[in-house]
Each structure stands twice: as structure tokens, then as C-alpha cells.
């Protein structure tokens, strides 16, 4: 493993995270079940990659597995490649993984109240990260932590440093979480539904903050959400997950205007629009399949309005290219013209 970065590729195309054929099994009452099935993607420096899907689609498990945060005894994680910059994550011990989380890859979760320790002051929790990873002295860590609180928009950071999580509002707690994630200037930030629990005006503040910080630090962001409005707002490129698989991947505008998979078409038609008068609200019939009871063939076929006989048998369809940067997992894609949203 060398310390020098490959010199050739220009910064915008440098891959910070590379995932190839990630498979995650979890232990259920009925034995092992595959919840993430062959997920592959790469994220470029400075890019925001969205991962969307309904609950249970495997989007959170994908990211927790990359960060090595799935409970070890009830989970099996396998991948051909799992690489953050030059670090091969599949070869790391849990202890070595601790050194990667923080400086290389950091996470922001949905519920900042449960992610912060209620028994320690907010300041101590930020300073701890700095002391652990950067070996800063108590005083230096404190100064950096206060500067970070200030940067993420927590008013009177000196005073707030000494306060406990319960003294913070939801939005302010999420700012603290962002400060912790940012503390060691990670290359990749994974944000798992970071604004879902927040009110819209606070969500707007947090999204704005993340955008600014990304511009400043040039980090890669993986943004997991079920809200297509948030995706449209912040993401450069999007992966759509369904029943543990990526069913479509595309640059943001293309995905919305020319979706390549019937599931994405269905999701778009199902989104009520606040900026338009009420029309018919479509819905995708049925439910996503249960873990351990995946349908044969295309996993979406029982709910797909375009399904034919060939969609129902002989294994799941492959992810195929629709264009240089657009992929779909649909057998019928050459003949279908799917409706996007303007």
C-alpha cells in the first residue's frame, strides 16, 4: 500500500469510494437472508451520490456495511472490492477500520438524539474524535471543536460546547453531528436520511450547510433518502434500489426526465407536487417483497405494469447500459418509453 495518490486522473474524476459486488446477508428467524445483492458503484471526489428507495430496499444496509457498522454476528458482508482511496476495507481488522472511520469515511444519521451520547457534553464528543484520530491535546481539541461548532452554524459555540445534547434542538443536534463527521476532514461522508426527522425550514438550512461544506472541503457525499425532492435538490447522480439491488443509476436530470426503470417511473408518478395543482396521484400497486421471499426473475415484476412472461423467470435481469452513465435492470427497456417529470 503506497501513500502517494495516483497522479494521472484529474481531481474531478478521482474515485474516493469503489464498491464492487457487495453482498450482505443478515440472520433472520428463518436463517440467513440476502438483503443487499450485488451492489457496485463508485463515487468521485466532490460528487454527491444519492441512493433512493423505499424502506427495506437495502439502501441503509449498503452504507452501514461499507462503513463496517453492521453487527458482526448477525451479518455477513462480502465484496469483490471495497476501497476508500488506497485503503482496501475488506482486508482491514475491526481495529484498523476504526482508524478509517473518521479521517476517511464518516457518517451522519437520521436521529441525532440517539447518535449522540446523552451523558457527555457536546463539546467533549467532538473533541474526543479529534484527540482519538489527530492526537490533539485537550486544549487544541477544544479550540478546534469550538471552531467547528461555529462553522456548522451553532450560535455562541463557546457556551454551547459545555452543554449536553438534550439542551439542543433537533436542527442544532444535526449540526453537531455534522461537526463530528467533519472533524477529521473525511474523504467520504455517508449521510443516511440526515434531514428526514427535521422540519422543512430546518431541512433547508442543513442542506444548504452540507452544500457549502462540500464546496469547501471537496469531499464525496453519499446521500441516502426516500425523498425525491431532496434528491433533486442536492444530488449529482443517483442510484435507485429495490429489494436489495440497484435497479437504475443515472445522472440527476436524466433520471428524472428519462427514467430507465418502471420502478423509478412509478416513484416519480407517485410524488405529489407542491408546486402544481392537485392531479391524480398514482401509486405502485402491492408491496415490496419480504426479505427471504424474493420473486423469481425481475424482483419488481409482481408490481410492474409492463411485466411480461419473460420477466418472471430465470434469474434476475442484469444491470445494462442505456447510455454512457445510465444503467437499468429491466429486460424490456429497449421497447419502453417511460414517463419522466419535467
Amino acid at each position: 500500500m503506497t501513500q502517494t495518490l495516483p497522479p494521472a486522473p484529474a481531481p474531478p474524476t478521482e474515485t474516493t469510494l469503489l464498491v464492487e459486488d457487495l453482498v450482505v446477508d443478515v440472520l433472520t428467524e428463518h436463517g440467513w437472508a440476502t438483503v443487499v445483492d450485488g451492489v457496485s458503484f463508485r463515487v468521485a471526489r466532490g460528487e454527491t451520490l444519492g441512493i433512493v428507495g423505499e424502506s427495506g430496499s437495502g439502501k441503509s444496509v449498503t452504507c452501514l456495511s461499507i462503513a463496517g457498522l453492521m453487527p458482526p454476528r448477525q451479518t455477513r458482508v462480502r465484496a469483490t472490492t471495497l476501497r476508500v482511496l488506497e485503503h482496501d476495507l475488506t482486508a482491514l481488522s475491526p481495529k484498523q477500520m476504526d482508524d478509517i472511520r473518521g479521517p476517511r469515511i464518516a457518517m451522519i444519521f437520521q436521529e441525532p438524539m440517539t447518535s449522540l451520547n446523552p451523558a457527555f457534553t457536546v463539546g467533549d464528543q467532538i473533541a474526543e474524535v479529534l484527540r482519538r484520530h489527530e492526537g490533539l491535546s485537550r486544549r487544541a481539541a477544544r479550540e478546534r471543536a469550538i471552531a467547528l461548532l461555529d462553522r456548522v452554524g451553532v450560535p455562541s459555540p463557546q457556551r454551547r460546547y459545555r452543554q449536553y445534547p438534550f439542551e439542543f434542538s433537533g436542527g442544532m443536534r444535526q449540526r453537531v453531528m455534522i461537526a463530528i463527521a467533519l472533524a477529521c476532514r473525511p474523504d467520504v461522508i455517508i449521510a443516511d436520511e440526515p434531514t428526514t426527522a427535521l422540519d422543512v425550514t430546518v431541512q433547508a438550512q442543513i442542506l444548504e450547510l452540507l452544500r457549502e461544506l462540500q464546496r469547501e472541503h471537496g469531499m464525496s457525499v453519499i446521500f441516502i433518502t426516500h425523498d425525491l425532492g431532496v434528491v433533486a435538490d442536492v444530488c449529482d447522480r443517483v442510484l435507485v434500489m429495490y429489494a436489495g439491488q440497484i435497479v437504475e443509476g443515472a445522472p440527476i436530470v436524466e433520471l428524472f426526465e428519462q427514467p430507465g426503470h418502471p420502478y423509478m417511473e412509478g416513484l416519480l408518478a407517485a410524488m405529489p407536487r407542491m408546486d402544481q395543482p392537485a392531479g391524480e396521484l398514482a401509486s405502485i400497486p402491492g408491496h415490496p417483497p419480504r426479505v427471504g421471499a424474493m420473486p423469481d426473475g425481475c424482483r419488481f415484476h409482481p408490481r410492474c405494469r409492463y411485466a411480461e412472461d419473460r420477466c418472471t423467470g430465470a434469474g434476475s435481469p442484469e444491470l445494462v447500459r442505456l447510455g454512457p452513465t445510465h444503467t437499468t435492470r429491466c429486460l424490456r427497456h429497449p421497447e419502453l418509453t417511460l414517463r419522466g417529470t419535467p
Partner: peptide, 26 residues
């Protein structure tokens, strides 16, 4: 402000909308 804070699920529309980011919490 409330309406401007709701992201619209259309990248073209959403990115050209004017948004009003309110300061602080209620």
C-alpha cells in the same frame, strides 16, 4: 418561506427556484 423550503421533485425546477432559508429555530 415554508413553501420555498419544500424541495420539488424535479432537478431543473428545484435548482432554479428561489429559496428563502429562514435563520434559526422557531
Amino acid at each position: 418561506a415554508l413553501l420555498s423550503a419544500v424541495p420539488v421533485p424535479s432537478p431543473r425546477v428545484q435548482r432554479s427556484r428561489e429559496r428563502i432559508v429562514l435563520a434559526g429555530d422557531p
